[in-house]
């Protein structure tokens, strides 16, 4: 991992000499100033388009405020947070989101790892495999959602027909995937997995490439089984990449929105946290509550990231090996 700029970057002036900070040479001072002149605009625009809305959301979340009734807007402190956190709908969305995060993460880890190991070693259709595997990454999530919705629907779909044939006519042809919570979540997760496994397997592939193959050879010579080599040699040596992949994927899955909106619209208890924010804001124009929910979602992401970075020692800046 790594690539976050460190000062020993090529071409940079060596600043390691013992010159005290107060006596920067003119050249070093000019370099600092030029550095911020070049990097500053991008940094400021980035802060304006991301941190400013969040700060504004925190401010709005402290008011009772409907967009359609701006006159009666008033400060109510943390009341919106209390309302949100005691609302059963919030916890239902929280559970739904958690289920999706856990299921997709576990399956994508296993599937992504298998694909990464295949891509790492495969000889013959090497380029073709790598290209085909990458394609879902570039597909619009909404397109993937529609494709899976049409595939699973009773009238236009093929999934029921295929399962019917594969199960020797045991599977009912008129099974309604979108009729229940778990079957809906299955299709939502399938679409999510299809779309995001490529990125997962690319991150894992990059990690695999760092594993010294001579270590694996040595273990093989010593009589280690395939599973032992995988658990004792490969996994520990790519731990950094593995944790980064898990962190990226978890944070990405928490904000899931596109797939359930297109597939179920939140029916059968499939509303996720992001959908809840959108419903309050856009459909009910409850800006105060919507902002509070947005801030809560933001805090959840922060907590998860904090747990990973502190608890699992995922180092995103100086990174493992």
């Amino acid at each position: 991992m790594s690539t976050v700029a460190t000062s020993e970057t090529t071409g940079a002036q060596p600043t390691g000499e013992k010159a005290p900070r107060s006596r920067l040479s003119d050249r070093a001072r000019a370099e600092r100033s030029l550095g911020w002149k070049l990097a500053g605009p991008a940094f400021i625009v980035m802060l304006l388009v991301t941190l400013y809305p969040i700060a504004y959301a925190i401010y709005l979340s402290l008011f009772s405020y409907r967009l359609t009734d701006p006159q009666s807007r008033r400060f109510i402190g943390l009341q919106n947070y209390i309302t949100s956190l005691t609302d059963p709908l919030f916890w239902e969305a929280f559970v739904t989101t958690t289920i999706i995060v856990v299921i997709t993460l576990v399956i994508e880890l296993v599937l992504g790892m298998a694909i990464a190991m295949l891509m790492n070693r495969i000889v013959l259709p090497r380029r073709t495999l790598r290209t085909i595997v990458l394609i879902p990454y570039a597909i619009i999530t909404v397109v993937s959602a529609f494709s899976w919705t049409f595939a699973a629907s009773v009238d236009t779909g093929f999934i029921n027909h295929w399962l019917h044939t594969l199960s020797f006519s045991q599977f009912p042809l008129d099974y309604d995937w979108f009729g229940g919570r778990w079957s809906s979540l299955t299709i939502i997760c399938l679409s999510e997995i299809w779309k995001t496994t490529p990125f997962m397997s690319l991150l894992l592939l990059a990690g695999l490439a760092q594993v010294d193959s001579s270590l694996e050879e040595a273990a093989k010579v010593d009589g280690a089984t395939w599973w032992q080599r995988f658990r004792r040699v490969i996994l520990p040596n790519m731990k950094a990449a593995l944790m980064v992949a898990v962190l990226f994927r978890t944070l990405d899955a928490i904000r899931i929105y596109d797939n359930p909106v297109i597939m179920t619209g939140g029916a059968n208890k499939t509303t996720t946290l992001s959908m809840l924010v959108a419903n309050e804001t856009i459909n009910r124009v409850e800006i105060g509550i919507g902002s509070a929910l947005a801030v809560i979602l933001f805090i959840i992401v922060l907590i998860v990231a904090f747990i990973f970075v502190r608890g699992f020692k995922v180092d995103l800046t100086t990174g493992g090996k």
């Binding site: 969040i54 944070l251 928490i254 904000r255 992001s274 856009i282 800006i287 902002s291 929910l293 992401v301």
Partner: peptide, 12 residues
């Protein structure tokens, strides 16, 4: 990794 939806409410 910001939840983008959190930006929607204030921007809206």
């Amino acid at each position: 990794f910001f939840p983008v939806i959190a930006m929607v409410t204030p921007l809206f």
